[in-house]
Lab assay of single mutants.
Amino acid sequence: MSIQHFRVALIPFFAAFCLPVFAHPETLVKVKDAEDQLGARVGYIELDLNSGKILESFRPEERFPMMSTFKVLLCGAVLSRVDAGQEQLGRRIHYSQNDLVEYSPVTEKHLTDGMTVRELCSAAITMSDNTAANLLLTTIGGPKELTAFLHNMGDHVTRLDRWEPELNEAIPNDERDTTMPAAMATTLRKLLTGELLTLASRQQLIDWMEADKVAGPLLRSALPAGWFIADKSGAGERGSRGIIAALGPDGKPSRIVVIYTTGSQATMDERNRQIAEIGASLIKHW
């Protein structure tokens, strides 16, 4: 067993022997301040990774656009098919120029040779490549099948209805392509620590998230040296922004954090800054 596999296998073990965790309302004060600064709703939840206990939450059962955070769930569904012998990570998928959609920095470079399922998941999570996500959605049967996968996990809230990039439209009061912070946090925890996926697939999923290259201005910008984070960000229309993450000190994750916002007129930089400040408060009061 590799060191990384050992780390993920012992996530519940280490967490069980940690000192009790206590909620700190100071972080919620910052979440509410972010709402004021952005002029928009902000949803927040913080779960203990081992027990699933909610440590703090704000608007945990209000719907927010998922945006690209759905790509972690998508690759979880792909990995479940791999575990069941219905898919192979090494299978190569070929596609054409007509398949390319807006923001496809990886797939646009491989029109000639195609990409493997493993490479597509890596591109979808680490670079948020939209064509990679659409190609992977095709392998599982489309958005409705991802929703069905989530329902089978016990998540009857999260739903995907459309493809990239239309799913980022974020129309107010439109339930399409949305989740709730509580539902997303619980589902992410199941994917990373539950028995739904094999140990190898859980490790692969967290490795992809740990290698995320496009979430630097968010929670990662607030992390002290030595902290662990595996995350996936999302951005959408109407001032929408979000991030889902597993993080913790001492090089291992111990909490799940989900943050979503929508309806702001603020710039992307300002949305990023507010999420980073929430992260800084979380870490300060850990």
Results as ranks from 00 to 15, higher is better:
P165G: 11
Q86L: 04
A34E: 03
V72T: 08
T187L: 08
K71A: 00
G242R: 01
L89N: 06
D83R: 08
A185S: 09
E195P: 13
L55Q: 13
T261E: 11
A230C: 12
L111T: 06
V78F: 05
G154E: 09
S201D: 03
L192W: 07
L55H: 14
A170H: 14
P65E: 02
H156P: 11
N168K: 02
L74C: 14
P105K: 09
I45P: 00
I125F: 02
N134I: 05
G242P: 00
R92D: 15
G234Y: 01
G142R: 07
A170R: 12
L205H: 00
T107W: 01
L191F: 08
M127R: 12
D207H: 05
K109Y: 12
S233K: 00
L247S: 02
K213P: 04
P249C: 05
T186M: 13
K252H: 05
S51M: 10
M268V: 11
L247W: 06
H151W: 06
A77Y: 08
A200Q: 07
L199Y: 04
P105V: 11
V29S: 15
D231L: 09
L136P: 01
I125G: 01
G114Q: 11
L28N: 12
A230V: 08
A183K: 13
E195D: 12
T178A: 04
P143F: 10
A230F: 03
I244P: 00
Y103C: 09
W286F: 06
V29E: 14
R241H: 11
L160W: 01
L160D: 03
E56A: 04
P253D: 12
P181G: 09
A124V: 13
K30Q: 06
I171P: 15
D129F: 00
I275W: 03
W227A: 03
Q265D: 14
C75Q: 01
L49A: 12
G248K: 02
S240K: 01
H156L: 13
L137N: 12
F70K: 01
L120H: 04
T107S: 11
N272R: 05
G263D: 09
M66L: 13
T187K: 02
T116L: 11
N152S: 11
D161V: 07
P181N: 00
G242I: 00
L197V: 03
I93K: 15
I244Q: 00
E46K: 10
A183R: 13
K71V: 00
Q265R: 08
A185G: 08
A183L: 08
V157T: 09
F64Q: 02
I45S: 12
A200D: 10
I140H: 08
G251H: 09
C121S: 03
F58P: 00
R238P: 08
E175T: 09
D231G: 11
K144M: 04
Y95V: 04
S80E: 13
L160V: 07
M115R: 05
A148W: 08
D129M: 00
R176E: 07
N130G: 09
D174V: 07
T131A: 07
R41S: 13
K30D: 04
C75T: 09
E35P: 01
E108K: 15
V157Y: 15
T69G: 02
Q265M: 09
G194I: 06
A246W: 09
G279F: 10
G52I: 03
I256P: 01
T116V: 09
W286S: 02
Q37T: 05
A132N: 01
M184E: 01
Q204C: 12
V157P: 03
S281I: 15
E102W: 05
A124L: 03
I206E: 05
A183G: 12
N152Y: 07
G279R: 01
A266N: 04
M115F: 07
L223G: 13
H94N: 04
P25T: 09
K213W: 06
T158W: 01
A215V: 15
D155Y: 01
L73K: 01
E26N: 15
E166C: 13
D99R: 09
I206P: 00
R220H: 13
S104C: 10
V29G: 13
Q86K: 07
A132D: 01
G234M: 14
L167T: 07
K53I: 12
T158Q: 01
G251E: 13
K213C: 04
Q203P: 02
L282R: 01
A235R: 03
K53N: 13
R41C: 10
V258K: 01
I125E: 00
A276T: 06
G226M: 06
L47P: 00
R255N: 02
M268Q: 11
T112W: 15
R41P: 13
E145M: 09
A40R: 03
L223M: 15
L282D: 01
Y44F: 07
R202E: 11
R162M: 06
Y95Q: 02
R271I: 05
D231S: 13
A230L: 10
A84Y: 12
P224F: 03
L223K: 09
S264H: 04
T262E: 04
A34I: 06
A170W: 05
S104Y: 04
Y260I: 03
R41I: 12
L160M: 11
P181F: 01
V72E: 02
S240Y: 03
Q97V: 11
S68D: 00
L223T: 13
L196C: 13
F149A: 11
M209E: 00
A245S: 07
P249T: 13
E164F: 00
G85E: 07
G114K: 05
T262C: 08
V257N: 02
L49D: 02
F70D: 01
N173E: 04
D36A: 15
Q203V: 05
V214G: 14
D99W: 14
L192N: 03
A266E: 08
N130S: 12
P25V: 12
Q203S: 04
E35G: 10
H151Q: 06
G43F: 00
V78C: 11
P181R: 00
F58V: 15
R81Y: 06
E35I: 12
A266K: 03
I275A: 03
I278A: 02
G90E: 12
L199M: 10
N272G: 10
A84F: 14
